Amino acid sequence: MTRGVRGATTVENNTANEIIEHTRTLVLEMAENNQIQPEDVSHAFISVTKEVDAAFPAKALREIDGWKYVPVMCMQEIDVPGSLPNCIRIMMIVNTDTAQKEVVHTFQREAVKLRPDLVEGKDR
């Protein structure tokens, strides 16, 4: 069965190093929280808000040991007025036996504001 695993983080500065660093941290936590191995990942979509354009976040996955061959596509998030700026979102499609309600979605930094219902009671 396939499931979607959500994750999001933010950057303070639009720099390649920060984009790659925070994306890497997010992917590793998403994988740890859900016991995901790279071979379990069908593909991943990464969206960024308009002000995050100094690097492709997908580069972070290619640099993680074992993740080089995971198909990843980057795109720009819809520019909704009042939405969270400087945000990187990931939708990872994985093969898993985990029940949908048991999937752990990971929100870091300012992105915890996106889905407080999914991070309630978690220290971030």
Rank of each mutant, 00 (worst) to 15 (best):
M1D: 02
M1E: 03
G4D: 03
V5H: 00
R6G: 01
R6M: 03
R6S: 01
G7T: 06
A8L: 01
A8N: 04
T9S: 14
T10G: 00
N13C: 07
N13T: 10
E18F: 00
I20D: 02
E21Y: 10
E21T: 09
E21L: 08
E21F: 04
L28Q: 05
E29P: 07
A31Q: 02
E32T: 14
E32W: 11
N33I: 12
N34S: 10
I36K: 11
I36E: 05
I36D: 05
Q37W: 01
Q37H: 08
P38K: 04
P38D: 00
P38N: 06
E39Q: 15
V41M: 03
V41H: 11
S42Y: 15
H43C: 13
H43V: 06
A44R: 04
F45D: 11
S47K: 15
V48L: 07
T49C: 06
E51K: 01
V52R: 05
V52M: 14
D53I: 15
A55I: 00
F56C: 08
F56V: 12
A58D: 12
A58H: 09
A58P: 01
A60H: 07
R62S: 15
E63L: 15
E63D: 12
D65E: 12
G66D: 08
M73F: 07
C74A: 13
C74Y: 12
M75P: 10
Q76A: 11
E77W: 03
I78Y: 11
I78N: 09
I78M: 15
D79K: 10
D79G: 10
D79H: 09
D79I: 04
P81C: 05
P81A: 08
G82I: 12
G82L: 13
L84K: 01
L84S: 01
P85C: 02
N86A: 01
C87Y: 08
I88H: 00
R89K: 06
R89V: 12
M91K: 10
M91G: 03
M92L: 13
I93Q: 13
V94K: 08
V94R: 06
V94Y: 05
N95C: 14
T96A: 03
D97C: 05
D97S: 14
A99D: 06
K101N: 13
K101Y: 02
K101V: 08
K101C: 09
E102I: 02
V103A: 11
V103Q: 06
H105Y: 01
T106V: 15
Q108A: 04
Q108H: 04
R109S: 11
A111S: 13
A111G: 02
V112I: 14
R115G: 11
P116D: 13
D117R: 10
V119L: 11
G121V: 11
G121D: 12
D123N: 11
D123S: 15
